Simulated scan of single mutants.
Amino acid sequence: MVRFTIIPDIHADIERLNVSLQRTHKNSMILFLGDFVDASKDVTAASDLRVLETARKLIAEARARAVMGNHELNALLYHSAGPDGSPLRAHSSKNQRQHRSFIEAFGVGTPQALEWTDWFLETLPLWIEVDGLRISHACWSDLHISEIRKRRPDGFLKREDLAEIASGATPFGRAVKSLVTGPEVPLPEGCLFHDYHGNPRKEVRLAWWNAGARTWPQASLSVPNPDELPQSELPSDVIAAIYPMDAPPVLVGHYKMKGDPGIQHPKASSIDYPNTPCIYRWFGETELTSAHLISL
């Protein structure tokens, strides 16, 4: 029996959401991986409102649960002011473009925008662990979850946390950002690589799900030329951030994976494939399998 149907990032694409729901097993609980809002330029039927209303109804009826994505957190920061009155997320042209479909639907700082960002806080925890399955938006880290639990044992943020998260200056703020955006780690002193835009980078996104990774090329994401990375073994603190082989299975979204949908590791995987959308049907297995990925 299908126990959960896991649906990754929707990004205001009501057509994709409807198709995902049509492929959902009627007796299974739906688990959403966050990022309901902010349509990409490729979405032809963008509707933040319809997506959010659909998700809210399913959750209110106890047919679904969901975690917070980085776009929900970004919306909270964009529509909130810090102690100096400035927005916690800058209203730059880049951020406006990313948040365009939400702004077009609800405005900036309006009662409607604040109603939905309140709903994010009230309804979307940073992680869910249920019946032997774990979900979060971009990363599962026992270390970061333990840090957050000291203040928010249930994983639900409060408005008074937002300024600290925006600054990223405390262990709590950094832990929250890591769960919704994924971990980045510094390269050894004197090392760098160039990203897809040609910019030099001294920190690399960590393929935290790759339990067998022991070198920098094996453990790194979004590096066009892995030969630029050090070929040495990973330091112990980076190895400690990689998901262990004996942990429960965890699914995330976020990473805009390319190619045909697949499972990166039997214990942890992203199922966010924007160009070839899919859902995952979980039957209670302790190891994830590509056979349970359903293309839409």
Rank of each mutant, 00 (worst) to 15 (best):
I128M: 10
P125R: 02
A138Q: 10
E147L: 12
E160N: 14
S232H: 04
W216E: 05
W208F: 11
P183Q: 09
W119D: 05
E129Y: 03
P188K: 04
D161H: 08
C191E: 15
I242N: 01
W216T: 01
M245L: 15
V185F: 08
W116N: 02
N210S: 09
R174C: 06
P125M: 05
A166D: 07
G182D: 10
D195C: 09
N225T: 08
V238T: 03
A138T: 10
T181R: 08
S141C: 07
H137T: 03
D154W: 05
E129Q: 11
L162R: 05
R174L: 14
L133T: 00
K177L: 15
F156Y: 15
L157G: 00
R201A: 03
P125S: 07
E189P: 03
I165R: 02
A166W: 15
P171K: 03
P217R: 01
G212V: 09
G190R: 09
D142R: 02
W140D: 06
S232L: 12
I165Q: 01
P230M: 06
L229P: 12
S141P: 15
S141Q: 11
A211Y: 14
K150H: 07
R151M: 06
K158W: 15
V204K: 03
Y243K: 02
P188F: 06
L114S: 06
A241C: 11
R214H: 09
R214Y: 09
R159G: 07
G132S: 06
A138V: 09
T181K: 13
A175S: 08
F193W: 12
I165W: 08
W116R: 02
P153K: 04
F193I: 08
R201V: 07
W208D: 04
S178Q: 11
P200F: 05
A163W: 15
I239E: 14
W116K: 01
L192D: 13
H254G: 04
A166T: 08
R201N: 05
P230N: 06
T117F: 09
P153W: 03
P249R: 01
D227P: 12
M245T: 14
E203A: 05
P224M: 07
Q231G: 13
S167G: 14
H144E: 08
P186W: 10
L157R: 04
L179E: 08
F120W: 13
A138Y: 10
I239D: 01
D195S: 04
L229T: 05
P188T: 08
L114R: 13
I242V: 07
L192V: 03
S220Y: 11
T170H: 04
E233S: 11
Y196M: 10
P224N: 03
E203C: 09
G155C: 09
